[in-house]
């Protein structure tokens, strides 16, 4: 070992190992190939034309065919798929309804999740890890199973109707399954842990003396909550809302199993376009537009996460 390496800080010496660059390079290359490159392929195919062939689209760019064949393929590109998306009301209705359902259900999840996270953060120190564990545990069971469970509860002869009829609140069964209400219930249920955990993290590390000070100065508890607790929990609120809103916008399983025929969410539309109509270029165009809608929230979410990580380290 040389003298220079000896005086360098140990961590730097570890990084200067001849094979150390692989630690970055291997996961980097993997993600670039399996996450980044596919997006460019989706983009390319969204400008192609559907064809009855294998694969079912043209043109197919032959990268080994030289520049000439690439240019001739580029000339065949069309924006027809995007024009079609604006012409057929099914698509823009799907986008609008997805955003609407995602926004409303994010708000509902916050309404249900906040008191829960608050209660957990106020619990005694001995109880808190146990409560966190109890919130995480359902998350480990299959998403599909948890959505499936609600079919048995919400359907016409289901358990909720049986219960409501039994206690005499209603006299004939309600139709809940296959409506948007069922979709909201399914989303709030499935995404609740994603909301509760960041909220809990923010509320748990809050300094109690601040509330004490507010109380000592004569601030009533409810006002103290809105002026002290809520603003301090905002990072958790923001993180939780993003973690719910972004994936819900493209959700497929919940609207498909719990929603009705008039629940048109974009994830379901994309799925049908791909699996039922086998129109790959159009499905790609649907995906590109969905991604454009989500790119702003995703970037904001990432910056938030990065800042959080930097604050902690």
């Amino acid at each position: 070992m040389t003298a220079a390496a000896d005086t360098a800080p140990p961590a730097a010496r570890q990084r200067s190992h001849p094979l150390a660059w692989l630690v970055v390079a291997i996961p980097y290359a993997w993600l670039a190939f399996f996450f980044l490159v596919p997006f460019f392929i989706v983009l390319k195919i969204s400008f192609s034309t559907s064809a009855i062939a294998q694969p079912p689209y043209t043109p197919i760019i032959d990268i080994f065919g030289g520049l000439g064949s690439i240019f001739s393929a580029l000339r065949e590109f069309t924006t027809d798929n995007y024009v079609f998306l604006t012409e057929d009301s099914l698509y823009w209705r799907s986008y609008l309804q997805s955003l609407e359902i995602a926004a409303i259900s994010t708000f509902l999840t916050l309404l249900v999740g906040y008191p829960m996270a608050y209660g957990m953060a106020r619990a005694s120190r001995a109880w808190r890890p146990m409560l966190v564990m109890l919130v995480i545990l359902p998350f480990w069971t299959s998403f599909l199973i948890r959505v499936y469970a609600w079919i048995g509860i919400l359907k016409k002869e289901g358990l909720l109707n049986q219960f409501l009829l039994w206690i005499g609140v209603i006299h004939e069964p309600l139709t809940i399954l296959n409506t948007n209400l069922a979709v909201y219930i399914g989303i709030v249920y499935s995404y609740l842990p994603f909301m509760v955990l960041p909220l809990y993290a923010a509320l748990e590390k809050m300094d109690d003396t601040l509330l004490e000070a507010a109380q000592d100065l004569g601030c009533p508890p409810i006002q103290a909550f809105w002026k002290v607790t809520f603003p301090l929990s905002l990072p958790g609120v923001v993180a939780g809302c993003f973690l719910v809103f972004i994936p819900v916008t493209g959700e497929f399983v919940i609207p498909d199993l719990l929603g009705g025929t008039d629940t048109v969410m974009i994830g379901k539309t994309l799925w049908n376009e791909f699996f039922s109509n086998r129109d790959w270029p159009l499905a790609s165009a649907v995906a590109v537009v969905l991604l454009l809608l989500l790119v702003v929230p995703i970037v904001v979410f990432q910056n938030q996460e990065r800042k959080q990580q930097e604050r902690e380290s």
Binding site: V24, F35, V37, L243, G250, F301, Q302
Partner: peptide, 29 residues
Amino acid sequence: FRGRTLFSGMIYAPLVMPDVITGLSLLLL
């Protein structure tokens, strides 16, 4: 390191990316 922003972006984006997009793009790859 060089390209760190892109790297951390590729780590966090799949966490919230709708499954239908991830699935479709991988299939096309």
